[in-house]
Design a protein around this nucleic acid. Structure first.
Lengths: 192, 192
DNA sequence: GCGTTGACAGACAGACCTGTCTACATAAGA
DNA sequence: TCTTATGTAGACAGGTCTGTCTGTCAACGC
């Protein structure tokens, strides 16, 4: 607990605060000063760990990607025990939607905030996140014995993104059910 | 052409520039000064027509809503001549995607940019836009002789939003085809 | 002719935002 | 003991943003 992984409290506090504010209020709307104040850190400590705001944004997206993927895949595995197949994706998303601070996908929001063209680094991280999710779903579809798991994943991704955005816009509790039905349609089409 | 609808050139130029910049670069990223400069208008002329930036944003969203709905519904009607049924929605979206300046849905982007809770007015306009789109699709599904057109519309909305966001993130030319297939699956499920 | 209206030009204030800088405290290791 | 790394506190510069203000000009209806 000494040299191998310093795990500095200051850096961690900055990152925690950044995750909360960047996700909850947006990248551009969140000022450095606010992150510094709410993480109880000195300005120079901040700039020692993150030379610029952009570096912090990139670190936030990277962290968010790993945390989200871990949570989502675990939720799918859990849900697939009681509801096997692609429909488990809808249950995993429904679990996420019940978060009090749900505000959609951090990567979609980040790209939506970026102008055209999106900040190259932000766009690349977001594209990488979505590609990894798609690949994971393709592998999961393969495990579910679906034919053409890659095409199934492409179609399921449309439903997944649709659910995420639509719940962000409407907060309609029926969305997981609609998504589940669609995913079952996809699964049936790739099974028979 | 005098008193009934003044149709002032200054106001129109401001609105045109605002539509282009707000959509292309984002609400927050676009400053008043830039809109004023690019529309070739005096600052006081701007503030005479729009008392604050927020008023301009609201006017932009309202205009965008009307223009987008008109274009989308017309494109669906056109597409449905050669490809009847829900799948025409995918063709209409594909037509939109081919715009050089495509940057996703202005309303999704606006909500993504707003913190939590989204600026109430922006959130309300965005929700209204999506509700109107959903209702239009439900009516269209009814015209296509689908049973339970409202449920079909709820499911189709998931696909529509998924296509919009996914094309924004990936620029994958195969997305209209994936969406078309999903919409045909929905239609088949609501027909048989 | 004259006043009103709408438009143009650009200075200005005040807030906020990013990033730099000085100064000092603490603790571990050479 | 002295250096180095890490931390706190807060002033500061330079930029950008929104919104206000002064002043000038042209067109049009009375």
């Amino acid at each position: 607990m000494t040299a191998a992984t310093p795990a500095l409290p200051a850096r961690q506090r900055i990152l925690d605060t950044a995750c909360r504010l960047f996700y909850g209020e947006g990248l551009r709307a969140t000022g450095i000063d606010r992150i510094i104040a709410e993480s109880g850190v000195a300005k120079m400590s901040f700039y020692r760990h993150f030379p610029s705001k952009n570096d912090l944004i990139l670190a936030f997206l990277q962290l968010r990607h790993e945390a989200w993927m871990a949570r989502f895949t675990a939720a799918v595995e859990t849900a697939s025990a009681t509801r096997p197949g692609l429909a488990a994706l809808a249950d995993a998303l429904g679990n996420w939607f019940s978060d009090a601070d749900y505000r959609g996908c951090a990567f979609i929001n980040a790209v939506a905030e970026s102008g055209v063209p999106a900040t190259p680094e932000v766009g690349a991280i977001a594209a990488g996140h979505k590609a990894e999710l798609r690949d994971w779903i393709a592998a999961y579809a393969g495990r579910c014995d679906l034919r053409e798991p890659h095409q199934a994943a492409d179609e399921a991704m449309l439903v997944v993104e649709g659910m995420i955005v639509r719940f962000q816009m409407t907060r309609d509790a029926a969305i997981p059910a609609h998504g589940r039905r669609l995913l079952e349609l996809i699964a049936a089409a790739h099974r028979g």
